[in-house]
Amino acid sequence: MLDEKEIRSVISGKRILVTGGTGSFGHEILRELIKYDPASITVFSRDEKKQHDLRLLYAHIRQIGFMIGDVRDYARVREAMRGQQIVFHAAALKQVPACENAPYEAVLTNIVGAENVRRAAIDADVHTVVSVSTDKAVKPVNVMGMSKAIQERIMQQPLDCGTKFICVRYGNVLGSRGSIVPLFVERIMAGLPIPITHPGMTRFQLSLSEAVKLVFWATVRGTSGDMWVKKMPSINIVDLGAHLAYGLTGKEEYPSTIIGTRPGEKLHEVLVSEEEMWRAVEYPGHFLIPSWRESFEVNGSVVPNLTEYSSASVDFLTREQSLAMLRDDGWIAESGYGPGPKLALYD
C-alpha cells in the first residue's frame, strides 16, 4: 500500500494532463487528484458535453481546466502537453464490438494517438507519462486488444530521454461506461432476464478506485519502461449477474438467457502471459514486468511459476465480496436490497 504522503510528494504542486479525462477512469482520477493539491489539472478529451458537465461539477476548483481535442491530432496534443509535468494517458477506444466494426478507428486512437502522446511528451519535456492498458492486450484475439498491445510497445520502447514512460494493466472495471454491470442493472430493473454470452466466461474485476490506486502506485514507484499489473480476483459472468440480481431484488434465483459470445470475445482473460512471467517480479499486490533492457534484479521475488495469470485460475469473488464491491461503487443499497445512489433514476 502507498502512504498518502508518498502520493502527495509526487502530485502536490505539479501540472497534470489527463487524456480521455471525461471517461469513467478520468472521472475517478480527477476526483482523487484534487485531494493532493496539484498546481493544475487539464482534462483533455473530444466530448464537449461531458466536459461541460464536469466543468459545472468542479466550478469551485480553480486548478481544473478543460481542453477539447483528440489524441489523433498531434498539433493539438502538443499544445495540450506544453508545460505539463505528469500525464495520465487514458484516451482510447475500449469497446470490443466497436473496434471490431471499425478496426482502423481503433488504430487511429489507440496506436497513432499513443505515438502522438509519446512524441509530444518528449518534445515538451514532461517528467512522467503513465499509460493505461488492459488485460485484452495479452494474447489478443480482438482489434481492441491488438491495438492496446501495440500501444504498450509504443510506450515501452527503449529511448534515452528525460521523460519517464510507465504502463499499467488491469482487468474489467466494475460498472465503467459500456461495461456489463450497467447492462445487467438495466435488465434487472426492467424485470427482464440477464443476457449471458457464455456460462463459462470469466473476467477479472476491480473497482475504479482500485484502478486509480494502481496508477498512483506506478507513478510513485515506477521507472521508465515498467509495466505494473495489479493482482485481482475474478468472477464467472453467470455469478456476477446472479449476485447483482440478488443485491437489487433480494431474489435467490433470477432468470438468465444465453445469447452467445460476441465477435472478438475471449472465454477467459489473461493479465500476465507465460512469456512475461519468466521475467516478472512478484510483489504482494502486484506483478512488475520490467522493460527488456532493464534487469529484473529488483526488490521483489522473481516468479518461479511460469503459468499465465488468467481469470480462470485466480480466486473467484464470493457473493459477499461481489456485493461489497457493488455497494462501495454505488450500484446497490448500502444495506438491505435495492438500487444504490447510481440508480436513483430507477426509484
Results as ranks from 00 to 15, higher is better:
residue 271 L to N: 13
residue 188 I to R: 00
residue 199 P to E: 11
residue 253 E to F: 15
residue 191 G to E: 08
residue 279 R to I: 09
residue 202 T to I: 14
residue 225 G to N: 00
residue 245 A to T: 10
residue 217 W to N: 07
residue 207 S to F: 00
residue 263 P to F: 06
residue 263 P to A: 06
residue 254 Y to G: 12
residue 222 G to F: 03
residue 238 V to N: 00
residue 237 I to G: 05
residue 261 T to H: 11
residue 193 P to Y: 14
residue 249 T to I: 07
residue 186 E to M: 08
residue 281 V to T: 10
residue 193 P to T: 12
residue 189 M to K: 13
residue 203 R to Y: 12
residue 197 T to S: 14
residue 265 E to T: 07
residue 250 G to L: 01
residue 222 G to S: 03
residue 271 L to W: 04
residue 216 F to K: 02
residue 270 V to M: 08
residue 240 L to M: 15
residue 202 T to C: 15
residue 259 I to H: 07
residue 280 A to W: 01
residue 241 G to Q: 02
residue 262 R to Y: 10
residue 200 G to S: 12
residue 265 E to S: 09
residue 185 V to Q: 04
residue 273 S to A: 13
residue 224 S to L: 11
residue 234 S to P: 14
residue 217 W to L: 13
residue 204 F to R: 00
residue 240 L to Y: 07
residue 258 I to Y: 00
residue 229 V to Q: 01
residue 190 A to W: 08
residue 253 E to I: 14
residue 207 S to I: 14
residue 255 P to D: 01
residue 226 D to C: 12
residue 269 E to M: 11
residue 232 M to T: 04
residue 216 F to V: 04
residue 273 S to N: 11
residue 241 G to Y: 03
residue 226 D to G: 10
residue 269 E to I: 03
residue 211 A to N: 03
residue 243 H to N: 11
residue 214 L to E: 03
residue 228 W to A: 02
residue 229 V to Y: 09
residue 252 E to T: 14
residue 277 M to Q: 05
residue 218 A to Y: 10
residue 248 L to M: 09
residue 234 S to N: 11
residue 219 T to M: 15
residue 282 E to A: 15
residue 188 I to W: 08
residue 195 P to L: 03
residue 273 S to R: 02
residue 244 L to G: 05
residue 273 S to T: 14
residue 237 I to M: 06
residue 265 E to I: 10
residue 271 L to S: 12
